[in-house]
């Protein structure tokens, strides 16, 4: 099992889709949301993913293919 911290940035057309829920279910990943800001037209979520390394890899590839931008957490993320 590994943990990975990432930021998802959602384009407007995906805001209303249950992407994080599906990510967790389809790839057996525990998704732990640490910080988020989602409005009508855009949104970002900082989360920790926990699961088998291969599952996380496939999960991130799937999220990316859906049109979500995935970035690693290296520096600061907004307060609150």
């Amino acid at each position: 099992m590994v943990k990975r911290q990432v930021m998802f940035t959602f384009p407007e057309k995906l805001i209303k889709e249950p992407i994080i829920y599906n990510l967790g279910r389809q790839f057996s990943i525990v998704t732990n949301i640490r910080r988020a800001d989602v409005s009508e037209d855009k949104g970002w979520v900082v989360l920790e993913l926990e699961g088998a390394e291969a599952d996380i890899e496939r999960g991130i590839a799937w999220v990316t293919s859906r049109g979500v931008r995935v970035d690693p957490i290296i520096g600061d993320i907004v307060e609150g």
């Binding site: 930021m7 970035d71 290296i74 520096g75 600061d76």
Partner: peptide, 8 residues
Amino acid sequence: GNPANGNY
């Protein structure tokens, strides 16, 4: 594109 210290 994703500046690590943009917030600071």
